[in-house]
Every structure is written in structure tokens, then in C-alpha cells.
Amino acid sequence: MSFFRRYAQNIGALIGLAILAVVVFVALAAPILYPGSPWQGVAEPLLPPFEDPAYPLGTDLLGRDIAAGIAYGARVSLLIGIISTAVAVVIGVAIGALAGFYGGRVDDMLMRFTEFFQTIPAFAMAVVLVAIFSPNITSITLAIAVVSWPPVARLVRGEFLSLRSREFVQAAVVVGQTGPRIMATQILPNAISPIIVTASLMVATAILTESSLSFLGLGDRNMMSWGFMIGAARTMLREAWWLSVFPGLAILITVLAINLIGEGLNDAMNPHLRGRKG
């Protein structure tokens, strides 16, 4: 398929895909690799890394296995990243599509509403929302979705605005298709590439936001997460560097991989950039 060939031309994008595949594999295999709970102390506390082959990344203050924590944390990060992005994309596409397609007063109202969300700093709003709704995985996911849909709405609005006046859309009006049908079958398929690219980058942002919330102690108390691990380790930064460095690396590598994928998708899907390296 030509799309995959275009994507594969970008070495960085392939590396990103490979890293993400490893992260997904670790997340899925976590219960098999580490059958016990990651909260369970398994060895002596503050075991440094690379000393005991059973605990290659060492243990923390309470003797919990860091490697197990990272494996279980991958599940939380990916889950929250993907679901919150999906929710944000659904909200953003719906609002952007209505605003762009109908224009006029509908557009004005929806865009003022969007700007209302955009003017509040996203992270501060997420903190407030999680604090109000007591921290659990649902409220965190929703809070991240609520603060990240406005850019999608603006993007989709722009795409719809320009596609709406194209002749094939006019033709659909002339043959008698209804507004919602035109939006779904004529315009959306033509606007999907930039949406996918943005969404892929939003997954990375969502993972960072979740980590930051957990770092501040606003994570789900029952789920091990990378941000929580770093947050818990901050008092021991000088005595036990491995408590924060390994979860930090996990975040860095995962976010980097997703960004590489997003850029690769952008290059492959954006017809204007096609062949710019050739």
C-alpha cells in the first residue's frame, strides 16, 4: 500500500512505531511478567538497580519492584492517553464540524464557547476538575479530555469551512443530501488526515498531563502510574536516583515515540509535503 510506503520513508516514524509496539507489549504482558500486585513489597527496600537480577531496576522505599511499577504504569498511561484523546476528538469534531458547516451565528456561539475553554490554562483546569470529582481513573480521563478538545474543534472548523465551499459539497447539496449526511459522508472523510495527526500528538500530551496530575498526588490511588512513582520518589532524589529516573525515562521514550509517529503520519498524509524530500 502506498500509504505505508510513504510512512516508511521516514526512519524516525518507524523507530517511533517500534518503541510504541514495545510499550504496548509490556503493558499487555504486565500481569504475566509480574503476576503480583505492583504495590506489594517484594524485596529489601532501596535496592539499587543492576545488582539483583530478579529486580533489574531496583526497588523503592517499601521494597516494591520498580520494573513491575513501570510495566503496570504503561497500562495506565496508554489507557488514559488513548481514551481521553478519543473523547476529546469526538467532542472537538462535533463542535468544529457544526461551527464550520453551518457558519454564521452557530459558528460564533460555538467558537466563543471554545475560546472560553482555551483562555483557561489547561493544566490548572484539569487539576481543579480532578480535585472536584475525587481522583479516580474516570475523572482523570474526562478532565484531560475536557481540557484538550478546543484545538481539535478549531482545526476541524477550519477544514470544514474550506471544504464546505468546494464543488463536490455543493453538488451533494444540489442532489438533495441533508446537512448531517453531507458532513459525515462528504466532508469528514476529506478532513480526516489532519485530525488523525493531531490526535496522535494529543495522546502524548495526555500521557504527560496524567503523569503531572499523579505527581501532584491527584492520580488514581489504586493504579500504579509513572507520574505517581516520580512524585513518591522526589524526597529521595539524591539518595536513590533510580526511583525517579526510570519512570521518567519511560515517559520520555513513550512520548517521544508517539510524537515521531505523529510527525510520520503528518508527512505521509499531508499532500502538500509529499515528495518534499525527493
Partner: peptide, 22 residues
């Protein structure tokens, strides 16, 4: 809308008037 089928249009630009994804 029910009357639209009686009044049809042929557009100017043969490249822009057909949805590229259909």
C-alpha cells in the same frame, strides 16, 4: 429539498466537483 431533484447542476471544475474519496 424534495424539489431539488428537478433542478440539477453541472459544475465548472471537473477536478473539484467529484469527492476524491468516493
Amino acid at each position: 429539498r424534495p424539489l431539488r431533484r428537478h433542478l440539477q447542476m453541472v459544475f465548472q471544475d471537473p477536478f473539484a466537483s467529484l469527492n476524491p474519496r468516493q
